[in-house]
Design a binder for these strands. Structure first.
Length: 463
RNA sequence: GGCUCGGUGGCAGAGUGGUUAUGUAGGGGCCUGCAAAGCCUUGCACAGCGGUUCGAUUCCGCUCCGAGCCUCCA
């Protein structure tokens, strides 16, 4: 029996996943700040977590997946002012675009997608608790978390407070008692948006929302808390401090979430993706050029914790691979997907159990694909079963092969015309008039129709 | 400066103390009138230097190089 192992950032090692409550696995992923189009890095987080949740669902009867939308934040305020669009309108627009773009990549909506602005009260209550427990203090309209009081601060990211102060490159705000203290609540002078609170009109600090929303939607403790690797510090470190301190569980960091799951970064053509370099790859743009399934497979072509270097070349390679799988499925269209024990081959599925090793899984699918040429019908049936069932988990190969490959569909020519031309060409071939035959083929190619002569006759597809 | 994580064949990317990763690209061949697809076949690897070992790409140490975080960031 396979056991799921996941890398836990809290402890920094591979651990067997043991659910808190086997009847309901609870997962929280830090979602996007919605002030712009999502880029391929956002997509990696969404796809990896979608895979995690989808795989968990094959093991456990119920999984509750929560991923938030951050809809109040300095960058949003700045974007709203710059574009002169009300914040609500801006965040609604980019939330919708985010969900749409992700769905093209085969990412399902989370079960709950809470918004920060719907949880201001919870954040205020949490802040009150922290003040009450003497882990937070108010100064100049700010409420700050008193980091030195939290002994285990830094455990997640593996750094200690002193080193951090020495290495710090930022000026310390005058209202902070300690350089590492962070904001829970801050003043928000009009026209900036804000809410009434015991500490005056203001808005929450960034880290507070995820502490509030995860507790509200999932209860404490929950199983897995995830996000991009850059969130380890300070965001997740601060979340742990807030939640544990608010509940006086400062000696048990796992009283918040048991497993911390982080995906690696996406680089672009070997460089960090950043606005200054101008190499941000937006999902919205990529979706216009490539099939979502190709992008998804490309995102899963490296292990989720490894950096992924996003280049045109790897998209092309994965596209070719995916097309081959679909050709396999096309060749297998008259074979039923079936396997005696109704189980995915162990050698194939074990990669997923081993910290979601998708490159291993994909490699094993290729091994199966290579066996097709010499397979009998029983074997073919098994291979088809594996392709489809594993594809279901990792989010590929669920389309109709004909549709995916473009067989029998053309945007330019109508079917009758194509069939007539193919017939004329085959007549020409029969008469050994190959010049005419090739001429017809070229003509079709020009109109985006490619033909293949198979032993069952000529078939055509759009390219 | 501190804390992480890496350096595998043209490219991408797993893994392992001794045996083929896998894909893609390239070479050769088969099939085809020719294509396309398919099939067969074939190069090319484990940054460097030490150590442990019968044996290391895999473990340990050092060196070099790269990336991320420490400030908003997926």
């Amino acid at each position: 029996m396979n056991k799921l192992k996941l890398h836990n950032t809290l402890g920094n090692k591979l651990e067997e996943f043991i659910p808190i409550n086997i009847k309901n696995i609870r997962v929280y992923a830090c979602g996007p700040t919605v002030y712009n189009y999502a880029h391929i890095g956002n997509a990696r987080m969404a796809v990896v977590n979608d895979l995690l949740v989808c795989f968990l669902r094959t093991i456990y009867p119920k999984v509750t997946y929560v991923s938030n939308i951050t809809d109040i934040d300095d960058k949003i305020i700045a974007a709203s002012e710059e574009k002169n669009i009300p914040i609500k309108e801006l965040t609604k627009k980019f939330t919708d675009i985010y969900n749409e773009d992700m769905s093209v990549l085969g990412v399902s909506l989370p079960d709950i997608q809470p918004k920060a602005t719907d949880h201001i009260n919870e954040m205020i209550e949490l802040t009150k608790l922290l003040i009450q427990n003497n882990f937070a203090y108010e100064k100049e309209g700010h409420v700050l978390f008193d980091v030195p009081k939290f002994k285990d601060y830094g455990s997640l990211s593996g750094r200690n407070r002193d080193e951090q102060i020495i290495g710090s490159r930022v000026e310390v705000a005058p209202y902070k008692k300690d350089p590492t203290d962070f904001v829970l609540w801050k003043p928000s002078p009009a026209p900036k948006p804000g809410w009434e609170s015991p500490w005056g009109f203001g808005r929450p600090g960034w880290h507070l929302e995820c502490s509030a929303m995860s507790e509200k939607t999932l209860g404490l403790p929950f199983d897995i808390h995830s996000g991009g690797a850059d969130l380890i510090f300070p965001h997740h470190e601060n979340e742990i401090a807030q939640t544990c301190a608010a509940h006086n569980n400062t000696h048990d960091l796992k009283s918040f979430a048991k497993y911390w799951f982080h995906n690696g970064f996406v680089n672009v053509e070997g460089e960090k993706m950043s606005k200054s370099v101008g190499n941000i790859r937006l999902v919205n743009e990529l979706n216009k050029e490539f099939k979502g399934e190709v992008l998804r497979l490309t995102l899963l072509s490296a292990h989720y914790r490894q950096p992924l270097n996003w280049t045109r070349n790897i998209i092309k390679q994965n596209s070719t691979m995916l097309e081959r799988f679909y050709r396999n499925l096309k060749d297998l269209e008259n074979i039923d997907a079936y396997k005696d024990n109704d189980q995915i081959d162990d050698v194939v599925i074990e990669g997923l159990y081993d910290d979601l090793n998708t490159p291993k899984v994909i490699a094993e699918l290729n091994v199966l694909s290579n066996q097709l040429s010499s397979a009998d019908n029983k074997m073919k049936s098994r291979i088809k079963y594996n392709l489809l069932e594993v594809g279901k988990i990792i989010g590929i190969l669920q389309n109709n092969p004909d549709t995916w490959l473009g067989y029998g569909k053309s945007a330019i020519l109508d079917e009758t015309t194509i069939e007539r031309l193919i017939k004329e060409r085959n007549e020409a071939r029969g008469n050994k008039n190959f010049d005419l035959a090739d001429q017809i083929r070229d003509e079709l190619k020009e109109k985006g129709v490619e033909i293949e002569d198979t032993k069952n006759g000529t078939i055509w597809k759009s390219v």
